[in-house]
Design a protein around this nucleic acid. Sequence first.
DNA 1: GTCCTCCAGGAAAACGTTTTGCTACCGTAC
DNA 2: GTACGGTAGCAAAACGTTTTCCTGGAGGAC
Lengths: 345, 345
Amino acid sequence: MSETRPPAPGPDEPRVTLVQVAKLAGVSPTTVSHVLSGKRWVAEATQETVREVIRQLGYRPNNVARSLRTRRSRMVAVVVPDITNPFYAVLTRGLADAVDGAGYGSYVCNTDGVPEREDAFLADVRDRGVDGVVMAAGDVTAELRTGPAGLGIPAVCVGGALDDDPHVDLVTPDDGVGSHAAVSHLIRRGARRIGMIEGPEATGSARDEGYRRALREHGFAVEPELMVRGDWTRPGGRAAMHRLLALPAERRPDAVFCANDLTAIGAIDAAHERDLTVPDDVAIVGFDDVDAATIVNPPLTTVRNPAYQTGQSAGELLLSRMTGEYTGEGRTIVLPCPLVVRRSA
Amino acid sequence: MSETRPPAPGPDEPRVTLVQVAKLAGVSPTTVSHVLSGKRWVAEATQETVREVIRQLGYRPNNVARSLRTRRSRMVAVVVPDITNPFYAVLTRGLADAVDGAGYGSYVCNTDGVPEREDAFLADVRDRGVDGVVMAAGDVTAELRTGPAGLGIPAVCVGGALDDDPHVDLVTPDDGVGSHAAVSHLIRRGARRIGMIEGPEATGSARDEGYRRALREHGFAVEPELMVRGDWTRPGGRAAMHRLLALPAERRPDAVFCANDLTAIGAIDAAHERDLTVPDDVAIVGFDDVDAATIVNPPLTTVRNPAYQTGQSAGELLLSRMTGEYTGEGRTIVLPCPLVVRRSA
DNA sequence: GTCCTCCAGGAAAACGTTTTGCTACCGTAC
DNA sequence: GTACGGTAGCAAAACGTTTTCCTGGAGGAC
């Protein structure tokens, strides 16, 4: 039971080093290193001796020294606006799981969307000798633009970030077809006037585009008065919805597609405040499928934004570059966004 | 505009090193180092020259080399069950914010509660030369017990983990008084039979204890039939609540305190399924104050588990040890858990 | 002129690995 | 006896910093 554990190293007490192992085993450091890495054949007997000494001394290789020599740290960085946002938390987890198997740890940076912090982290990341970066912070700043390229290490961007560097990969959800599916669903369910609460800068957004396309394909006009702007938040969604509901009865929407779930939840609030029932008086669909979507009443029909898969794919892309297995042009992988039907539409 | 930026270092292209800077500036590496660190006075003129060369070459110190020499990495690790759980995400953020100012990065490890993964991460953390660890993974395994101590680096535990090592700090929410406040609130509001849905292993839990104490202080008996076991999940809470509601009418609770919010949300589901209204027929209070608490209907009255503050305090404790500013006995800091009254009770 | 002090700064030894040559030895074939 | 090939392992040079001692010289006191 109480077998002698390797002595616990004190705070600044000297660690057991490879050289000590070598000495005690009566071989050279070279040999110990090779036993560990398997990069060169070592006679069985020697190998056994060395391993025994390692066990006995409780030797653990010092990763910092190793990194210095090999110039790899087996560490990836993920820079996100805010880990507190469930979408990014899940993304981060997908990434971590993807690279963990290959022995990579993950270093997270919260930028809060502040460009300076973003730049600072990118610099930090380079200084720390991280092996790869996934940029999930939305905005593209100057440093970022030349950044991942200039960083000299593999990078993959997540979401819209359109870096034109040919060696940066991109993974992005298929917002367009997701939105299209959502709106088509609404139409199929009998909606005749479908509004949309957009993000703050809707111009050219894929979610917007999917909405318009679905409308047109089914012979509906897209009416400017039915498109109002939100700001991704619940209060923003509530306010926007109130604007929609203030229209004269016959021009009022009987369904609204919201650019994200928080907005949709706000929209539901507004509907309830007007004593409208969802989905009978007005159907509502969101985008993202956050946890809250199942908690709100009624449960929200929404488009799933595949956060975990996004992180995972980013991890795989990164891995293939870090190992040198792939070195070509920037790849783009777009992930499907399935519609998940619950009760709000 | 297009000022010549420092040349972007290619993938494996040689980085600019301190030695190159020294050569070009016509000084020794020693001097450059001192200009950078300020650890020794360097003449103004020399300083200026060196800085100029640094700027010109776009030199950035290599942190790995620095870490090897100084034996600090300016990096803390946080090991959590799952970053995807909002509580831990927020905690992590608090920690990151606390140490960021001092130049520390944060390395996150998801254990999923699997002891082997926990051990593996702890080992990894040591090998990577991380400067400090916060253990937020609940369970205390063997390695962990001797772990933080044996790690030889500052560590702080979060939550119940009772490491008896005298050099490990502890930060924990004051579940006891939080629960007490919740139950007292229920009583003040006129509840007469107050049930509780506990966690899976309630024995001796602080939340349990607070419940009992409040009851006794107000002259109520604690009745075993009113205490049922949940499993921290929404379905678990729902099932438990159904058990409570299956009691004969006169013994049925008119209020229930739930060990966490998810459980409480499940309890609300169950109440609704029985056509009971919350809080009029049965009042419900949760614990944690997760985002979902404001989304559920009715908004949940709950006890706030100060995740951010917990992370932050852990960070400060860690910092004080890492800088060597504090080296004494293990400290314990307990954070208040205020009751936040919404509409479910 | 000698001694002491102060100021600026340099040389070189760490830190703990990995990796590139090289060597010593043994057997075998000519 | 010489040449050759193969095996097992070593010495030493990296990797890019920080830090501990030194040193060279200027100024002042005696």
